[in-house]
Design a binder for these strands. Sequence first.
DNA 1: GACGGGTGAGAAAAGCTTTTCCCAACCCCT
DNA 2: AGGGGTTGGGAAAAGCTTTTCTCACCCGTC
Lengths: 358, 358
Amino acid sequence: MTDLIRDDLESSDERLPRGPRTIRDVARLAGVSIGTASKALNASGRLSAETRAKILRIAREIEYRPNVLAQSLHRTRSMTVGILSNDSFGRFTFPIVEALERRLFDQGIAVFMCNATDDPLRERRHIDQLLGKRIDGLVVTARRADRREPIEPAARGLPVIYVFSRVENRNALCLLPDDKGGAALAVRHLAALGRRRIAHITGPERFEAVRLREAGYRAALAEAGLAARPGDYRPGHWSEAWGRDAVQDLFSRRRAVPDALFCGNDQIARGALDALREMGRATPADVAVVGFDNWEVMVKGARPPLTSVDMNLDALGREAGVCLLDMMAGRVITGVRRLPCSLVVRDSCGAGQHSAFE
Amino acid sequence: MTDLIRDDLESSDERLPRGPRTIRDVARLAGVSIGTASKALNASGRLSAETRAKILRIAREIEYRPNVLAQSLHRTRSMTVGILSNDSFGRFTFPIVEALERRLFDQGIAVFMCNATDDPLRERRHIDQLLGKRIDGLVVTARRADRREPIEPAARGLPVIYVFSRVENRNALCLLPDDKGGAALAVRHLAALGRRRIAHITGPERFEAVRLREAGYRAALAEAGLAARPGDYRPGHWSEAWGRDAVQDLFSRRRAVPDALFCGNDQIARGALDALREMGRATPADVAVVGFDNWEVMVKGARPPLTSVDMNLDALGREAGVCLLDMMAGRVITGVRRLPCSLVVRDSCGAGQHSAFE
DNA sequence: GACGGGTGAGAAAAGCTTTTCCCAACCCCT
DNA sequence: AGGGGTTGGGAAAAGCTTTTCTCACCCGTC
């Protein structure tokens, strides 16, 4: 019997010529109808145990793999979602995408990756393509500076989630890191270690994140009975050079100098560390430093290794996956959700090697 | 007439209830058969100009978008490809993926992103999922250390390209940067600037890239009538710390010291620059430094800005796209292709601000 | 011996396009 | 007026699954 089928298979090289096997092949080889084969493969319907087993065995033998395209056509669910990024995928969007993909993969859902690089026309064309492919959901990520326009309503009925970017529309769901809370975490930590004068060197104020982190910085200072002195808050650029410049300015022109720096990203912090060392200030003995982003390659190479706020981007991506699944199931989710950051403690702040979570 | 149709559309909110419009909707509204509508939409067949125009107008009005799933089912081409990464997408794979996606997008092909993080079981499941979705091609990227096993032959007939990773199989196509050539480029440049003693600090020797770059280093030295003295070739780790350590060792224990460093990546070069500065050696006056990777955030933050070898990852991704399209069209491409690197000149090597391409 | 119920399997439609084949009508010509 | 060639459009199959309905048959029971 098995031999018969095996012969049948091997001699059938011309009878199963092109491409992947279909359920029709399975049915023919098993001597049953297509419908019956389908029932066996989906463990549905009423079938005798032998029939079922035989069909399954044959399917395994010929490496049958159901055509998801056909399934999708029938179910009107494509088992795919799109992720559309401006801000050409990078440092920030990657961990998000990765966590999202991981979360969705277990449900058999695959992720289309699209990059629009801030070109509205390209974005439009990408969305058209994705709609043509009948995606079940869409995640939009973007650079962090500006609020963006919501996606064309043509996609009405399609679940859309904005991650790492905000839209005004109240019916949209936006997932963001809690910048304010993250900043407060860092400043609170420094204050708890006894630092009394904490400066904040950060990026351009047109970034909402910069404004939120400033708020967190001031709130945590106030909480600790401290205040920022004039010039202690330094918006500027996201670069190492700015970190160096700001430190030189902060520490050369004055008598009373900060005993801690909270930096808006790890690059600024790197620059600050370098400048401090070159000015003869010891870290963390004289000046404690905390960064933001917890970018591994940056924080580990720093001297000393840099304490930094982690935005938990993977949690953000995972949450996007969960929400997307919910929305596909019909639930309506809207609003702005901010996920907590955590502080990863290393040597630059003068504490132990413990990691403090919110 | 237009009003009639408009009425028809608006009153048809229940007649076109769920989801996207179909060609059936177009045909019904235009009063033609489905086949006729298809011909108009695909600019094929013989139709009167008016019929054609009317169908197109209606399609536009109701925002008809053909169901690619159905098209794919019919054409047995899904217009999708997969990209499977181990080495959890990062610094190296991202530019590749991005360039690939950009190249394929114009052909209406979308890219599924999958991350297997070096787990063979996950990889297997990802491939199964992709085959189920009937991808037209697959790109495999991986970490650079080791040659990997080729993808399961179950995918026979499916075009597969390995990028940034090698497999033994002679029938496979592997796309890689020309590490040897890139290294030679750097060393040749340093020699041309008059440097006579060029050391090479690099990563672990188990990386094929390390071995290839060493070969390029030695070849270019020989070309210039130079040779590496014992201890001038320093394999180690990919970290800043290693760059610092190696420089301290190279420059403290000896009298005759190198006047140039070629570093295996930008992080090593950063560490080297820092150590040199702290040892009182001027860059580039005393010691010229060249890195590898041309990682923007690393090279621009360096002091002085770092000259570095660029692997042109986007060219690699684009080439992968081109090859994949060729293979989908039936062409057979095999072998190992190495794409040229280029040298991006900044201040750390003591040359002008010019960019020298291979 | 007839009928009812249960069991196992097949037929067919639906999901959306494309493409081939076919047909009806019309024109022109002889 | 009839025949041949265009022309414009429709019918239907194919591509692969799933699901619902239906049917045949067997068993047991009255």
